[in-house]
């Protein structure tokens, strides 16, 4: 293969890849573009919706939406629930991940416990939501952030267990043994040696858990009433008089912008995270 042919092929591949990338990026772009249009133009702008070329943009929808407290409440609730559930999942899940990596369990064996954790992700939420609804009402934690945090923590915990378990397995055990020879307790070895060395994996798991908790609509729409989060806030853009796409677009952007940034930050770990530790990215 000569050099020219190689670079020609590279160009062709690049163009194809770029085309596909643009197609995948387009919906996000379109939504952003929508948020800058006046209502009348929602369905009339042609081309790819570039501001100043295809239409005259306005920030009206944004200022309007952000000037009401509901937007801040949704943003605050979503952040609070996602952050606290993630933290809680780490506190409870991390030791379990460590246990699965370092100790041998016989009944049931380690791998079955791991798979059992994973199976929580498989569970259809529709099967769990009715009992949650009834129980939460009985316990008086219906429509509370606390109740929501419990639910989210439950369903994101498999991520931290499975992802970090893999990292712990890859750590040389000698480091912990050395610490223990120096007089550290088991717990000390875990906290002072294993955890600090796994920070990148823990961070990756956190980002993924945060996003899942942030994006959830199904549980929130059932278990929350006055306390609403961003997806519910987005749904609120639909009224008895139809869908207000211009406001929905703004709300959508508010909701997706944080996960998108996190996604870019966590790029390196997404593969491992979303395959639950089975594939190393």
């Amino acid at each position: 293969m000569n050099r020219n042919q190689g670079s020609l092929l590279t160009s062709i591949y690049t163009i194809i890849a770029l085309g596909i990338t643009m197609i995948f990026f387009f919906p996000l772009w379109w939504s952003f573009s929508n948020s800058l249009r006046i209502p009348k133009e929602t369905f009339t702008v042609t081309g790819v919706g570039i501001p100043f070329i295809n239409f005259t943009p306005t920030l009206g929808n944004w200022t309007h939406q952000l000037s009401f407290p509901e937007a801040h409440i949704a943003l605050y609730n979503s952040s609070f629930i996602a952050v606290v559930s993630t933290a809680l999942a780490i506190i409870v899940g991390l030791p379990a991940a460590y246990a699965l990596a370092r100790f041998r369990f016989r009944f049931p064996p380690n791998k079955d416990i791991t798979i059992w954790f994973i199976s929580q992700r498989v569970l259809p939420p529709a099967a769990a939501v009715v009992p949650f609804f009834v129980l939460w009402n009985m316990l008086g934690i219906y429509d509370t952030k606390f109740g929501m945090i419990i639910v989210q923590t439950t369903f994101i915990m498999p991520f931290v267990v499975v992802i970090v378990r893999q990292t712990f397995l890859d750590l040389p055990i000698e480091l912990e043994e050395a610490a223990m020879v120096d007089g550290a307790t088991h717990i000390g070895a875990f906290l002072k040696v294993a955890v600090p060395l796994s920070v990148p994996a823990i961070a990756a798991a956190s980002l993924i858990m945060f996003t899942f908790a942030w994006n959830d609509y199904f549980f929130v729409s059932v278990l929350m009433m006055k306390n609403f989060t961003l997806p519910i806030y987005i749904a609120g853009g639909v009224d008895s008089r139809g869908v207000q796409f211009w406001f929905i677009a703004v709300r959508t952007m508010i909701a997706v912008i944080l996960p998108l940034i996190l996604c870019l930050l966590a790029q390196r770990y997404i593969v491992r995270g979303l395959t639950l530790g089975a594939v190393k990215g």
Partner: peptide
């Protein structure tokens, strides 16, 4: 019914 501050109802 909510459709925000400038929405119906």
């Amino acid at each position: 019914l909510d459709s925000g501050p400038k929405g119906g109802i």
